[in-house]
């Protein structure tokens, strides 16, 4: 009897888990199956599409690298320093994840439009941030920064403080300790955060569409094709972009997996 009960439990767990996986796979697989070969390759051949995909990857990559310059120090402070208001700051860091991205776009637009502080500052330099790659980059960064900050913070927190103290005692300055001990030891988490930020940034639609409709990123182009021409016209581009994202994701997984395997096999020696 007990055995039958245990079996039922297992089957229920298995069933519920499969439903969730199916829920993720089914729409994507359906999209792939419904897209004809000719349509798909026709889309790849379309230079507007190719430019848009490249543009999206390029801008998200740039945004990730530029913002990492501040996000990594912020992550280090959050991991190492105890100060009043630390929890509030952690809440602020997580804010972009919980607010609607269209609202984030509106807020950002207020800042970078000609009336906004950043917009005025940029216009002094002869720059218009709205409908500009810089605006797109800002929108992408705004919604994807928490992924990098939190991953890097966990990375720094996992570095034993004793190693940093040892480096100090060996005569290293605080900045040297950061660059030769803390950063290399937190590097895996930081890279993982960078990839997540990049992936999240390139997929962003809500904030980007409000701040910069043009030049068109791939998610905006998908939306435009859908609203102007309908589902079947938007599908091949969607599939292409999903595949690009998947390839990047899988490559990253392979790299990090390979490093982990290497590390464990070293430890086994």
């Amino acid at each position: 009897m007990a055995r039958v009960k245990g079996d039922i439990f297992r089957w229920v767990m298995l069933f519920l888990s499969s439903m969730i996986l199916l829920f993720i796979i089914a729409p994507l697989a359906g999209m792939a199956l419904k897209t004809g070969r000719n349509e798909f390759f026709g889309t790849i051949a379309d230079s507007d599409v190719r430019n848009s995909v490249w543009y999206t990857l390029r801008i998200s990559f740039t945004a990730t690298i530029v913002f990492a310059g501040g996000a990594i120090p912020l992550a280090w402070i959050m991991a190492r320093k105890r100060f009043p208001g630390r929890k509030v700051i952690q809440g602020i860091i997580d804010l972009p994840v919980v607010i609607p991205h269209t609202a984030a776009g509106i807020a950002l637009l207020g800042l970078i439009s000609r009336d906004g502080i950043a917009g005025q500052a940029a216009s002094v330099l002869g720059l218009n941030l709205v409908n500009n790659p810089a605006g797109t980059a800002l929108a992408m960064a705004f919604v994807s920064l928490p992924f990098l900050v939190n991953a890097a913070r966990d990375g720094f927190a996992s570095v034993p403080e004793k190693l940093e103290k040892a480096a100090l005692s060996l005569g290293a300055s605080r900045s040297r300790v950061f660059f030769t001990i803390s950063l290399p030891l937190a590097w895996r988490n930081i890279v993982s955060g960078l990839v997540m930020m990049f992936a999240r940034g390139m997929s962003e639609f809500g904030a980007v569409v409000i701040v910069a409709y043009h030049p068109m990123t791939a998610p905006v182009m998908i939306y435009e094709r859908f609203s102007s021409f309908g589902l079947s016209y938007a599908r091949p581009l969607s599939l292409l972009f999903v595949l690009v994202a998947l390839v990047i994701f899988i490559l990253f997984r392979m790299i990090s997996l390979e490093r982990r395997v290497k590390k464990t096999s070293e430890a086994d020696d």
Partner: peptide, 10 residues
């Protein structure tokens, strides 16, 4: 020069 408990080897 200080040597730490558990060595703190990098």
């Amino acid at each position: 020069g200080m040597v730490f408990q558990d060595f703190a080897v990098f």
